[in-house]
Design a binder for these strands. Structure first.
Lengths: 337, 337
DNA sequence: CTGTTAGCGCTTTCAT
DNA sequence: ATGAAAGCGCTAACAG
């Protein structure tokens, strides 16, 4: 009924608890035959070491935490997939926490993890997180942390991001090439590093076209309802022929807004978006999407973290490791081949 | 630097460790002023209880495991979201494991969880899992488990599923209503409960149309490359005018297969699929999708599990709780309104 | 090579 | 109302 312990094995075999323990961890100072006996019984009784006991004793848990704003966004599900793949390889376990874009929640989760519950943290910041007070204890306790995608610029920690500026630049050029004369940039949150960089790339692209192409900026919210109104209104009054959505969600809302106004895509308005919904882009050649290598980002972030965990003693973890996955821009024309 | 413990608080306040412990857990036998002092210091020093120590001592971890085949599938990301929402509410933590549709991996994960690492398990079975030997230890140890979506028919445990049969019936009727005369059902794996029920619903619908509508069955694999060949070949030789894909992936492959043959969708071939890619269906009105209430399923499954955890003593957990979330069928015509 | 012992940090009897 | 002490299951020093 109840789980079987090392003690039971010891009693059964007339050995000391420590001997059994050592045999199980394949210590060099145990005779081959004793090891064999122990392993045999362990297998037979289906022994499984108590993770909490061993985590308490050694001061590491072979567990990492992943903190993300949400998962409804397809991007993060791919990231998690990548993370878990690496974790599995390294025999680590993954605790998952959603902040739902809520700073309060983010702080609570972090607070909890301060107890030594995890060996390391992988984190993508909540949208509205502008102050980072709640992150300091992590640094003080020296818990390794790696930021991905939505990084924390004010903290000297490793980050893994995609090259948002460059991708935006390219993508905006693409919009201009296909004839857009007035492009609206839909911003999701100025506090988000990704939004900033994407906007910068956008603006840079516009600027180099000196005057030929007009641009406008529409700050959106996290409320879909409200966004729909904002975008519809903008479409009606400003009549742009191109939309650059900073995030996928806004592209979809734009899609609906266009539909409600009877605007054809891409004939009347071209919509461009960062996205990880490969499927969506595959199924609808009308959209131009910038596919982010989400799975790879998860793997990269996890790899960086595990490197930190392994080189814990060298104490060089404050060094800033920045990995910029390059991005794949997939255009509608390519897909419709 | 290192995390602060109950012992430190005790020494600082000149109290016994046990007193501090009791104060923190708000025991009735501690004076109000002592409690206040303890709490104050705890707050000040940012004390966080060591989860491993307390999990070891009490025999519960306030942690559950979610075992799913994959997450690239959008369906499961919504499910996880639902699960995490409930877990957060109940102050539980969530460990996540992917089996990658691999029975071997599934067994390993289960094996690990036998150590009392989690209080309960939420699980969706791997596709190729036909034998269930690896699940027995769970039952023997009495670890509460709830299956969702891909349930285990041979095990008497609570399950949460959507009504696949009924949805398939309705969906197939829809295909027939819009004029399909020869419909191909693409099966993903006969070992999967969902595939079976969906096929049954499909066949039932065909059967009631006595002879008017032809049907065929195409068993597919988990290899996209191979599926693409299979489907393209089938389209060329059998020339169906309707496709019922058991899972989203097969719908997308079908989409590509049609494209490669120059077949128009939905003019030449109508594609229907279970899916949770709401976005895909919104973006491409050519597809008919049956949207599954994934988020709700996650919440339901988690709720059932927590009920079991709370009523642990009553030992009535072998009772079979079946929740059939009803499904929402969203048709292309509705979307293109 | 194996056994004895001392904790990891916390909860929980049992005393007082 | 508080303290002393035992112990959850495991690891790791220290003996021998």
């Amino acid at each position: 009924m109840s789980a079987i312990t090392i003690k039971m094995l010891a009693r059964e075999l007339n050995l000391a608890i420590s001997t059994v323990s050592r045999a199980l961890m394949d210590s060099y100072e145990i005779s081959a035959e004793t090891k064999e006996k122990v392993h045999a019984l362990a297998r037979q009784l289906n022994y499984q070491p108590n993770h909490y006991a061993s985590s308490l004793r050694r001061q590491r848990s072979k567990t990492i935490a992943v903190i993300i704003p949400e998962i409804s966004n397809n991007f993060f599900s791919h990231v998690i997939n990548g993370i878990e793949a690496i974790a599995q390889e390294k025999n680590y376990h993954v605790l998952i926490y959603f902040t739902h874009e809520n700073q309060q929640k983010e702080a609570e989760v972090i607070q909890h993890l301060l107890s030594g519950r995890v060996d390391g943290i992988l984190m993508s910041m909540a949208g509205n997180t502008s102050n980072i007070q709640h992150l300091h204890p992590i640094r003080e306790q020296g818990i390794p942390i790696v930021f991905f995608d939505r990084i924390c610029a004010d903290l000297d920690a490793p980050t893994v991001t995609t090259d948002d500026f460059d991708s935006s630049l390219l993508a905006t050029h693409h919009l201009m090439e296909v004839g857009c004369k007035k492009i609206a940039y839909l911003s999701i949150s100025p506090h988000l590093s990704i939004d900033c960089k994407r906007m910068q790339g956008f603006q840079q692209a516009i600027a180099t076209k000196n005057g030929n192409v007009a641009s406008l900026l529409l700050p959106c919210s996290t409320d879909p309802q409200r966004n729909q109104e904002l975008i519809t209104n903008m479409l009606a009054t400003e009549k742009p022929d191109g939309i650059f959505a900073s995030v996928e969600k806004l592209a979809i809302t734009s899609y609906h807004a266009c539909a409600s106004l009877g605007l054809a895509i891409p004939a009347d308005v071209k919509i461009l978006s960062f996205s990880n919904l490969e499927t969506a882009s595959l199924l609808n050649p009308a959209l131009t999407t910038i596919i982010q290598p989400a799975h790879d980002m998860g793997k990269s972030a996890a790899t960086v973290l595990f490197n930190m965990l392994e080189k814990r003693k060298t104490r060089n973890w404050e060094r800033n490791t920045v990995i910029r996955s390059s991005m794949i821009i997939r255009r509608s024309t390519q897909i419709a081949r």
